Lab assay of single mutants.
Amino acid sequence: NRRVIAMPSVRKYAREKGVDIRLVQGTGKNGRVLKEDIDAFLAGGAKP
């Protein structure tokens, strides 16, 4: 169970979209999950 780095607003956005943030690959600094990562996940998967 890895620790997810994300701003509270991004965590809320993921919850609102029904996304398990632990499944999203973060592309920000130090692997931080960004809102754009949530959108990319919803569009068909995590960014490479």
Score class of each variant (00 low, 15 high):
Pro8Tyr: 13
Gly44Phe: 14
Val4Pro: 09
Gln25His: 03
Ile5Glu: 14
Met7Leu: 09
Lys17Trp: 09
Ile38Gly: 01
Asp37Cys: 01
Lys47Asn: 04
Gly26Ala: 10
Leu34Phe: 12
Lys17Gly: 08
Val10Thr: 04
Arg22Thr: 15
Gly31Asp: 14
Val24Met: 02
Lys47Cys: 05
Asn30Arg: 07
Lys35Phe: 09
Lys12Ser: 13
Ala6His: 08
Val19Leu: 09
Ala6Tyr: 07
Ala40Cys: 10
Asn1Phe: 03
Arg2Pro: 02
Arg11Pro: 05
Phe41Asp: 08
Gly31Phe: 09
Arg15Trp: 08
Lys47Glu: 11
Val19Glu: 00
Val10Ile: 14
Ser9Trp: 13
Gly44Thr: 11
Gly31Cys: 09
Gly28Phe: 01
Gly45Ile: 09
Gly31Leu: 04
Gly44Pro: 15
Lys29Leu: 03
Asp37Phe: 00
Ala40His: 06
Ala46Phe: 11
Ile5Gly: 10
Gly18Arg: 07
Leu23Ser: 09
Val4Arg: 05
Lys47His: 12
Asp37Ile: 00
Lys29Phe: 14
Lys29Tyr: 01
Lys12Leu: 14
Asp39Asn: 01
Phe41His: 14
Lys12Asp: 14
Gly45Trp: 07
Gly26Val: 04
Lys35Ile: 12
Pro8Glu: 15
Arg2Glu: 08
Met7Pro: 00
Ala6Gly: 11
Lys12His: 14
Gly28Val: 05
Glu36Asn: 13
Val33Asp: 00
Arg22Tyr: 08
Glu16Arg: 05
Leu23Gly: 11
Asn30Pro: 01
Lys17Ala: 09
Gly18Ile: 06
Val10Met: 04
Tyr13Gly: 02
Tyr13Ala: 05
Gly45Tyr: 05
Glu36Asp: 15
Lys12Tyr: 02
Val24Pro: 02
Val4Met: 11
Glu16Asn: 10
Arg11Trp: 09
Lys35Leu: 07
Arg3Cys: 04
Glu36Cys: 06
Glu36Ala: 11
Arg11Thr: 14
Pro48Ala: 15
Ala43Cys: 07
Asn1His: 01
Val24Lys: 00
Arg15Val: 12
Glu16Met: 00
Ile21Gly: 02
Gly31Lys: 04
Gly18Asn: 06
Thr27Gln: 08
Asn30Tyr: 10
Lys29His: 02
Asp20Met: 03
Tyr13Val: 04
Gly31Gln: 13
Asp39Val: 03
Gly28Gln: 10
Lys47Trp: 04
Asp37Ser: 01
Gln25Pro: 13
Leu23Pro: 05
Pro8Cys: 06
Val10Tyr: 02
Ala6Cys: 07
Ala14Ser: 06
Arg32Met: 10
Ser9Val: 15
Lys29Gly: 03
Asp20Gly: 04
Val19Phe: 12
Glu16His: 01
Glu16Asp: 15
Lys29Ser: 10
Gly28Tyr: 01
Thr27Gly: 08
Gln25Tyr: 08
Gly28Asn: 01
Val19Thr: 12
Tyr13His: 12
Met7Gln: 02
Leu34Ser: 04
Asp20Asn: 07
Arg2Thr: 07
Thr27Pro: 00
Leu34Pro: 00
Ile5His: 02
Val4Ile: 14
Gly18His: 06
Gly45Arg: 08
Gln25Phe: 07
Arg32Glu: 13
Ala46Arg: 09
Arg2Tyr: 15
Gly31Ser: 09
Arg15Thr: 14
Arg32Thr: 10
Asp39Lys: 15
Gly18Val: 04
Leu23Met: 04
Asp39Gly: 06
Arg32Lys: 14
Leu34Cys: 04
Val10Arg: 01
Lys29Gln: 10
Pro48Arg: 01
Lys12Asn: 09
Met7Ser: 06
Val10Ala: 07
Ala43Ile: 11
Gln25Val: 08
Val10Leu: 10
Lys35Trp: 11
Arg15Ile: 10
Gly45Gln: 12
Pro8Leu: 13
Gly45Cys: 12
Lys17Met: 05
Ile5Cys: 14
Val10Cys: 09
Asp39Pro: 01
Arg11Gly: 10
Lys29Thr: 11
Ile21Tyr: 08
Ala40Tyr: 11
Arg15Tyr: 12
Val33Ile: 15
Val10Lys: 00
Gly26Tyr: 00
Lys47Thr: 08
Gln25Ser: 11
Glu16Lys: 02
Gly44Asp: 12
Gly18Glu: 15
Ala14Gln: 03
Gly31Thr: 08
Tyr13Phe: 15
Val19Ser: 02
Pro48Met: 04
Asn30Ala: 08
Arg11Ile: 15
Val4Tyr: 05
Ala40Glu: 06
Ala40Gly: 14
Asn30Phe: 04
Ile5Tyr: 02
Glu16Tyr: 03
Val19Met: 05
Gly44Val: 11
Ala43Leu: 12
Gln25Ala: 13
Asp37Thr: 01
Gly45Thr: 12
Ala40Asn: 12
Lys47Tyr: 09
Arg2Val: 01
Thr27Glu: 08
Glu36Lys: 07
Arg32Asp: 15
Pro8His: 14
Leu23His: 10
Val24His: 06
Phe41Glu: 10
Lys17Asp: 02
Leu23Glu: 14
Asp39Thr: 08
Gly28Ser: 05
Ala43Gln: 14
Leu34Lys: 09
Gly28His: 04
Lys35Tyr: 13
Val4Gly: 05
Met7Ile: 01
Thr27Lys: 05
Leu42Gly: 09
Ala6Met: 06
Asp39Ala: 08
Asp37Gln: 00
Ile38His: 00
Gly31His: 01
Lys17Ile: 09
Arg32His: 08
Asn30Ser: 10
Arg22Lys: 15
Arg11Ala: 14
Tyr13Asp: 06
Asp39Tyr: 01
Glu36Ile: 15
Gly28Leu: 02
Lys47Gln: 09
Lys47Phe: 04
Ala46Glu: 15
Arg11Lys: 05
Arg2Lys: 14
Arg11Asn: 04
Leu34Ala: 09
Met7Val: 02
Ala40Trp: 11
Asp37Tyr: 00
Asn1Gly: 02
Gln25Arg: 06
Arg2Cys: 08
Asp20His: 05
Asp20Val: 04
Gly45Glu: 10
Arg3Ile: 08
Met7Lys: 02
Gly45Ser: 12
Leu23Tyr: 14
Gly26His: 05
Arg3Trp: 05
Ile5Trp: 11
Pro8Phe: 04
Ile21Val: 09
Val24Thr: 04
Arg11Val: 15
Leu42Arg: 07
Asn30Asp: 13
Lys47Gly: 10
Tyr13Gln: 05
Gly26Ser: 09
Leu42Lys: 09
Arg2Phe: 04
Gly44Asn: 15
Arg2Leu: 08
Val10Gln: 05
Glu16Ser: 06
Gly26Gln: 06
Glu36Phe: 07
Asp39Cys: 07
Gln25Asn: 05
Arg22Phe: 02
Val33Lys: 12
Val33Ser: 01
Leu42Val: 11
Ile21Phe: 10
Leu34Glu: 13
Asp20Ile: 13
Glu16Pro: 00
Asp20Ser: 06
Gly28Trp: 01
Lys35Arg: 08
Ile38Lys: 00
Val19Lys: 02
Asp39Met: 04
Leu42Ile: 10
Ala6Phe: 07
Glu36Tyr: 10
Met7Glu: 15
Lys12Trp: 06
Arg32Tyr: 08
Pro8Asp: 15
Asp20Arg: 04
Arg3Glu: 11
Asp37Glu: 00
Lys17Cys: 08
Ile5Leu: 07
Ser9Leu: 13
Ser9His: 09
Lys35Ala: 09
Val33Gln: 03
Pro48Ser: 06
Ile38Phe: 00
Asn1Trp: 00
Gly26Phe: 02
Gly31Val: 06
Ala46Ile: 15
Ala14Thr: 00
Gly44Gln: 13
Asn1Met: 11
Asn30Met: 11
Arg32Gly: 11
Lys12Val: 10
Ala43Lys: 02
Ala6Asn: 14
Ala43Glu: 09
Arg15Leu: 14
Gln25Met: 10
Ile21Trp: 11
Thr27Met: 06
Lys12Gln: 15
Ala6Ile: 15
Gly44Cys: 02
Thr27Val: 03
Val10Glu: 13
Asp20Cys: 08
Met7Asp: 15
Arg11Tyr: 06
Ala14Cys: 03
Val19His: 00
Asp39Glu: 10
Ala14Val: 00
Phe41Asn: 08
Ala40Ile: 14
Met7Phe: 06
Phe41Met: 13
Lys35Thr: 04
Val24Ile: 12
Arg15Gln: 15
Gly18Phe: 02
Tyr13Trp: 04
Arg11Leu: 15
Pro48Trp: 05
Gly31Trp: 04
Tyr13Asn: 02
Gln25Cys: 10
Val33Thr: 09
Ala43Arg: 10
Phe41Pro: 02
Val24Gln: 02
Lys17Leu: 13
Ala43Ser: 09
Ala40Leu: 13
Arg11Asp: 06
Ile21Ala: 07
Ala46Thr: 13
Ala46Gly: 11
Val33Ala: 06
Tyr13Thr: 04
Gly28Ala: 09
Ala43Thr: 11
Thr27Ile: 01
Lys12Phe: 12
Lys12Glu: 07
Arg3Leu: 09
Gln25Leu: 11
Met7His: 11
Val33Leu: 08
Gln25Asp: 15
Leu34Tyr: 04
Arg32Cys: 04
Gly45His: 06
Phe41Gln: 13
Arg22Gly: 14
Ile38Val: 11
Met7Cys: 04
Glu36Leu: 06
Asp39His: 03
Val19Asn: 01
Gly44Leu: 13
Lys17Thr: 08
Lys47Val: 11
Gly18Ala: 09
Phe41Ile: 15
Arg2His: 09
Lys35Asn: 02
Arg2Gln: 13
Gly26Met: 02
Ile38Leu: 08
Arg32Val: 06
Asp20Phe: 01
Ser9Asn: 06
Asp37Ala: 00
Pro8Arg: 13
Val19Tyr: 00
Lys29Val: 02
Val33Gly: 00
Leu23Trp: 03
Glu36Met: 05
Arg15Pro: 01
Ala40Phe: 12
Gly18Trp: 07
Asp20Lys: 05
Asn30Ile: 01
Glu16Ile: 03
Ala43Tyr: 07
Gly28Ile: 01
Tyr13Ile: 06
Gly18Thr: 06
Ala46Cys: 06
Lys29Ile: 03
Gly28Met: 02
Pro8Ala: 14
Ile5Asn: 05
Arg22Trp: 13
Ile21Pro: 11
Arg2Met: 10
Gly44Lys: 03
Leu42Tyr: 07
Met7Ala: 00
Gly28Pro: 01
Gln25Glu: 12
Ser9Cys: 10
Arg22Ser: 15
Gly44Ile: 05
Lys47Ala: 07
Lys47Met: 05
Gly44Tyr: 03
Lys12Thr: 11
Pro8Thr: 11
Leu42Phe: 12
Asp37Lys: 00
Thr27Phe: 05
Lys47Asp: 07
Asp20Thr: 13
Val10Phe: 01
Ile38Met: 01
